[in-house]
Design a protein around this nucleic acid. Sequence first.
DNA 1: CAGGTGATGTTGACGGTGACAACATTGGTG
DNA 2: CACCAATGTTGTCACCGTCAACATCACCTG
Lengths: 212, 212
Amino acid sequence: MVRGELEERSYHHGNLREALVEAGVELARSGGPGAVLLRAVSRQAGVSHNAAYRHFANQEDLLAAVGERCMTRLGELMVERSAQVAARGPVRRARARLEAIGRAYIDFARTEPGWFRTAFSSARHDAEGPAADSSAGSAETNPYLILGARLDELVEVGALTPERRRGAEFAAWSAVHGLSSLLLDGPLRDLPEAQIEPAIGVVLGVVNRGLE
Amino acid sequence: MVRGELEERSYHHGNLREALVEAGVELARSGGPGAVLLRAVSRQAGVSHNAAYRHFANQEDLLAAVGERCMTRLGELMVERSAQVAARGPVRRARARLEAIGRAYIDFARTEPGWFRTAFSSARHDAEGPAADSSAGSAETNPYLILGARLDELVEVGALTPERRRGAEFAAWSAVHGLSSLLLDGPLRDLPEAQIEPAIGVVLGVVNRGLE
DNA sequence: CAGGTGATGTTGACGGTGACAACATTGGTG
DNA sequence: CACCAATGTTGTCACCGTCAACATCACCTG
């Protein structure tokens, strides 16, 4: 049923929805959410405009699907960086793993601004955030759940008290997301390169200290 | 030269640029940056499409002007809330004033999401952020400078050490902006009302503690 | 005070986009 | 094998940004 990419297709594509989302992700990478156009993704997929309407209700629906994919990419980077942490000792390690996902978040925003903006551009996300019921987007790549797991780790090793654990996601996430946004689209857009790394350090430091 | 609003105009508007920006602000209030369209603002101003091209290079340019106005509105609310603080004692007062502008920021985002999104939607801002040279948008209503002033106050009263002052804007601003963004367009979009206020408290608390 | 000229607003056109409707093709199912 | 629902296509429409050509007028110059 699923056709190979090089195979000649005859009228029916066979895997159009996936092809459209993938095309959208590619367009979003360089052009951000504004580049995820129904006609553009259809062209990219070698299909007529309007074919997408068999798989998405409208452009917003397509954008949501593409955004979800971008969010997954972000989660994947966080998982990857978290796994690379080599710190020894339970407390040091847990702290390093938290910092790693924070830095991964910011790095993702800076190296893939199109994807980052697209991940947060959709007006409708299914199964993200605290109210995540077990549906799409496997839990391992959900940034919110990844953050929660790292914070739980901190509690387990005794580096974070249960009271401080309460709502800690909001603080950590807000700080990291806020810095990313300000660096990308906010007034920190033109911050000199040399000042960015120190700024990241300050933000992560404040969060770290604030959670103690 | 400047004509009254009710006066019949004859061919030349007299104050079109301002009228267009004002129309843009009005449209942005309910529709966000996506509603700031050249043709829409021109209609609203009772002028033909294309008239705007005498005052703005393109739609992006218009959006930047509208965004700047929205940013000013945000700054005005911050100033207002900061001035209302009644806490006594220099340290308590300085702390309360910092918290007040943080809450004002978040309140603005929540009560005027269209304006908030528009303020940060422009790809080009003149004279915002750290590199602000003395140009447009009076310094009193520049959110970044307002924040800096509050942090300076904290140093003056001895509630913040000079070392911690370094880059403190980044931490405070990121946390507050991040929470606003996540509540508006991020995965916290559907956070139950009852959990929002506690979340704000946690975020502000972490920043406060992190700066000590 | 008259005429002209540059700034400002209008009309018309073009290509691109989202969306709807009607039609074409086809894979699977009875 | 015939039918049908799913899937893709063609055609159309309204709206948008933008450019070019034209119209009007405020103001300056003489």
